[in-house]
Nucleic acid binder design. Structure first.
Length: 609
RNA sequence: GGGCACGUAGCUCAGCCCGGACAGAGCGUCUGGCUUCUAACCAGAUGGCCGUGGGUUCGAAUCCCACCGUGCCCGCCA
């Protein structure tokens, strides 16, 4: 079978294949190969005169050499009045491969059409994968704001919420890798009743009223004790005392609603301090933000009032029990949305509408990561925004299921739960003892100093926690168990990180430049690894489309497996010539993809382990 | 009661959006592999009425309906 490809005349016939040229994009071999296959298949359908609504593309099984396949023959069998294998064979015959770059031929396997890559597919992949920015997709003309975490500034972040910053940060990173311009926001709920309670408690009680010292030397651990004290007081005190406290809390909320500067300052004193502590915790993950936008902004600038008037003017608005509400039954939501209390103050959803309109003004798309307990509110928000004339297709809400303890739910107010700081500490500790055990067990002569061990422990420990969460579908329920969360076995971050360290170990010993004189590798294990490298940009593209970072994790698992097989079968440093050049490129490519892929997940890639 | 999510090997999970090639991993259990480019690794064995029942289809873990189990929500809280 002759090898078609890059030196073929028909390739330059742009009038015949109008869109092949534009889809060519550096480093996106699989994307282009798929486009080519689609084109060939479409033309073959025209030739044969058959039609169907789907090309039935699929990923071929592992033991097949193809990189893309189709089961379209099944669909055409009745129209063609022939058995599927005959249909497949006819289609394969009708395909004119002369125009393709990355596909060398299309084979049939029974009813299946399998597209086999050309040698240049492998060579170009190697060439692309050794570039540091491999998998960074071309710039998109779309700005996105990713809002995540947005936890009430009431106290330490517990594990129940930890999914939010981890998934949110990974989604933001994924979108950046996919070429979007991304801002990351934290919406600070500083205007609600909770913060009024907190402010009152902070001003009312002092250290002597608190039962216990802070469990950690950081500001939010100190202050949360006032919040808890305030809440338990409201539950337990006499009705006179509670009445007095409630009056004060009500005064704070009215003050905020009226835009009173003094009240705002009192609340800010609490909010800002607690938030500083929470930021410090999030920075450990690390989850960082471009903007912390406060709820009170939308009260002070009058936009919440504006939203209220516009909502009141809607057909769906009803005034009942002295409160303004939205009747959303006709929109599939049988729970009314109250947007103005009988005392004239706004509610969280009202302000969130103003907040979202503000986001819509500045960004093309708004992604929000929310706990599943906010599902109803998310639906109400979307509907209300739509009724106010917004295009809600630009709003994407990603829901995750809360992390619970076996004994029940975690709560900042009640003080039940495991603090994220404690989980991270423990993870780092375990990682450190693993590193040390390995140093003792094995005479590696790594010469790891204290500082390096510390660094590895951090990257591996925190990476394991992040990876454990980000590698699963967000909607899957998780029950927190220490043993599980700290399981560093295979199919975890350390497994993937280890591959990176192995790559670094090899490349450290190499003097020559990597990337000269590359060709298509011949060893099956090399080719399998190379095919996986070629997939990476495609994986980023698909994962970003679905806002599903866990797909990147699954891919990295496969890549790590393939690399370990390669590591076993194909000596790199002991090889020479063309083989060595290719193998070095495979190592560099794997190193790059693992580092870039882990980076998308927000997980570090250590150079030694 | 209603709405939503989840149910795949003893355990933890991919696969489901967009139906197709024998349902894949890891952990566990059992066997084997370090004077070798890092054994946080690898090779092999073991293990599945894909919650249940129906439907659509040439073909269903995947789509539709019903049911069962679990979780979340159904505040003038956020």
């Amino acid at each position: 079978m002759p090898e078609f490809g890059w030196n073929c005349q028909k390739r330059c016939d742009a009038t015949r294949h109008p869109y092949w040229q534009p889809t060519q994009s550096p480093g996106r071999m699989l994307r282009q190969a798929r486009d080519e296959f689609v084109q060939l298949l479409t033309e073959a359908l025209e030739t044969t005169g058959w039609s169907t609504d789907s090309l039935a593309l699929e990923e071929p099984p592992e033991d097949v050499d193809a990189i893309v396949a189709s089961s379209i023959a099944f669909r055409l069998a009745s129209e063609a009045q022939r058995p599927p294998p005959a249909v497949a064979a006819e289609l394969a015959d009708a395909m004119e491969l002369e125009g393709a770059t990355y596909l060398s031929r299309v084979e049939t396997a029974g009813p299946y059409l399998n597209a086999i890559p050309a040698d240049i597919y492998f060579r170009d992949t190697l060439q692309a994968a050794i570039e540091a920015d491999f998998g960074q997709l071309p710039k998109q003309d779309e700005t996105v704001v990713v809002e995540h975490t947005s936890a009430n500034p009431t106290g330490p972040i517990h594990v129940g919420r930890a999914r939010n910053p981890i998934i949110g940060d990974a989604i933001a990173r994924l979108l950046i890798a996919a070429g979007y311009e991304v801002d990351i926001h934290y919406y600070v709920n500083d205007a609600g009743r909770q913060m009024a309670v907190f402010t009152w408690a902070y001003e009312t009680f002092d250290e002597n009223d608190l039962a216990e010292p802070p469990s950690r030397d950081r500001i939010e651990y100190d202050l949360v004790r006032y919040y808890r004290k305030g809440n338990s007081f409201l539950e337990e005190a006499s009705s006179d005392e509670v009445g007095e406290a409630e009056a004060e809390i009500e005064a704070i909320m009215q003050g905020l609603e009226a835009g009173d500067e003094e009240t705002y300052k009192r609340v800010s004193e609490v909010t800002d301090q607690v938030l500083e502590g929470m930021k410090a915790c999030l920075a450990r993950l690390p989850a960082t933000f471009d903007t912390f936008i406060k709820e009170t902004n939308f009260m002070l600038d009058g936009s919440t009032d504006g939203v209220v008037s516009r909502l009141q003017a809607l057909e769906e608005a009803v005034f009942e029990d002295d409160a303004w509400q939205l009747e959303l039954e006709d929109h599939g939501i049988d729970k009314r949305l109250v947007f103005l209390r009988s005392d004239g103050t706004s509610l969280y959803p009202t302000r969130d509408i103003a907040h979202h309109e503000w986001k819509f003004e500045q960004y093309d798309r708004a992604v929000t990561v929310l706990g599943e307990d906010h599902k109803l509110q998310a639906d109400q928000l979307r509907t209300a925004l739509s009724l106010l004339g917004n295009d809600t297709s630009q709003l994407q809400q990603v829901l995750y299921s809360y992390v619970n303890l076996a004994e029940g739910r975690m709560s900042t107010r009640r003080g039940t739960g495991v603090d994220l700081d404690d989980l991270l500490d423990e993870a780092i500790e375990r990682a450190r003892s693993e590193v040390e055990r390995r140093m003792d067990d094995r005479i590696r002569d790594d010469g790891l100093d204290e500082e390096t061990v510390e660094q590895i422990a951090n990257i591996v420990g925190i990476g394991a926690v992040r990876y454990d969460i980000v590698s699963k579908q967000p909607t899957k329920p998780i029950t927190f168990e220490w043993e599980h969360a700290l399981d560093f076995e295979a199919q975890s971050a350390p497994f993937v990180q280890y591959v990176h360290a192995r790559c670094c170990g090899i490349l450290d010993r190499v003097e020559e430049p990597v990337g000269d004189d590359l060709s298509a590798p011949s060893h099956p294990t090399e080719r399998a690894l190379c095919e996986l490298l070629a997939m990476y940009p495609y994986v980023v593209e698909e994962a970003a489309k679905e806002l599903a970072p866990h797909r990147v994790a699954s891919y990295l698992q496969d890549l790590a497996d393939a690399f370990n097989a390669f590591y076993r079968d194909c000596p790199v440093l002991d090889s020479s010539g063309e083989v060595r050049a290719n193998r070095l490129a495979l190592v560099r490519g794997t190193q790059t993809v693992v580092a870039n892929g882990l980076d998308v997940l927000g997980v570090g890639a250590p150079e030694v382990m």
